[in-house]
């Protein structure tokens, strides 16, 4: 009995130590993240260089993602339309419910939150691996020795660039989703007038702005978290790969968490 108690106490203390260490590590990361953002979100050393980088980042992070956004949104819009038609509609429901529900799903959740989750994978891993490689090849050290605020020079244009382009991507996503649902009319599952009626039924403009606000917040989460993961890499290529994966996982989790708060705050 005494031995069993000893084992239990030991097991309990190991668990407590693990929890304390995890909390300590989490707080350390949070502190480092805040410090890094403090360095990044300051006035650029040279506005000319900042704008040059800003345009480049908008192109690299945003413009290069338009294709994937359009393709995914088009097909998801079509599938949502089909699923609602097949599973929800009944003789007791008005026919325009398919268009109405598709619009609300695209506008409120898919184009803002789920699209940002997908972009967290594409853009987040891109940012973390780019900055991580710069760290391990001493390019960031080179910037620091020159007297350049490396965090500001590398991270701020990415944050500003994606925050600018993300609402545009979300708008494209909504449009592609709606086009996708129109495409299902070719299969004969529904008709264009029915969809038209649904898309126009009780349209609340605020829902569009909710999507835009969410997109801007998620853009900040994706870029800042991924940049933090890349900037703090230590080691070699294996660590860069790990940082890239961690960036995607962490930014996805944070997007989902903030989605709950934003949804309850905005709607």
């Amino acid at each position: 009995m005494r031995r069993f108690c000893k084992i239990e106490i030991k097991y309990h203390s190991i668990n407590t130590t693990k929890i304390v260490l995890t909390i300590k590590s989490g707080l350390t990361h949070l502190g480092q993240y805040v410090q890094l953002m403090g360095r990044a979100l300051t006035q650029p050393d040279r506005w000319r260089m900042f704008f040059k980088q800003y345009v480049t980042e908008m192109f690299q992070l945003g413009y290069n993602s338009i294709g994937i956004v359009l393709i995914i949104s088009f097909f998801i819009g079509a599938v949502i339309c089909l699923q609602i038609k097949l599973n929800i509609q009944s003789p007791w429901m008005p026919r325009m419910v398919v268009g109405y529900t598709t619009r609300e799903i695209m506008l409120l959740e898919f184009s803002s939150s789920i699209m940002c989750l997908i972009l967290a994978g594409k853009v987040g891993s891109n940012i973390a691996s780019e900055i991580g490689t710069m760290r391990i090849t001493q390019q960031i050290d080179a910037l620091d020795i020159m007297g350049v605020n490396s965090a500001n020079y590398l991270i701020l244009p990415k944050i500003a660039g994606l925050m600018t382009i993300m609402p545009i991507l979300v708008t494209f996503s909504v449009c592609a989703g709606i086009l996708g649902s129109y495409a299902t009319t070719l299969m004969g599952t529904t008709t264009v007038p029915e969809l038209d009626e649904g898309f126009r039924y009780q349209f609340n403009q605020w829902f569009f702005w909710c999507g835009m606000i969410k997109a801007i917040v998620y853009a900040f989460i994706i870029t800042s978290v991924s940049a933090y993961k890349g900037y703090t890499v230590e080691g070699g290529s294996v660590e860069v790969g790990k940082a890239s994966t961690d960036a995607v996982v962490l930014s996805s989790i944070l997007i989902l968490f903030s989605d709950i708060f934003l949804t309850s705050m905005l709607t």
């Binding site: 490689t133 090849t137 001493q138 390019q139 050290d141 080179a142 620091d144 020795i145 020159m146 007297g147």
Partner: peptide, 19 residues
Amino acid sequence: KIKLRREMGMIFQSAALFD
């Protein structure tokens, strides 16, 4: 420190050029 750093030049082992 930033001011002093502008008086420094450094050549790294890996050259550390911007790719």
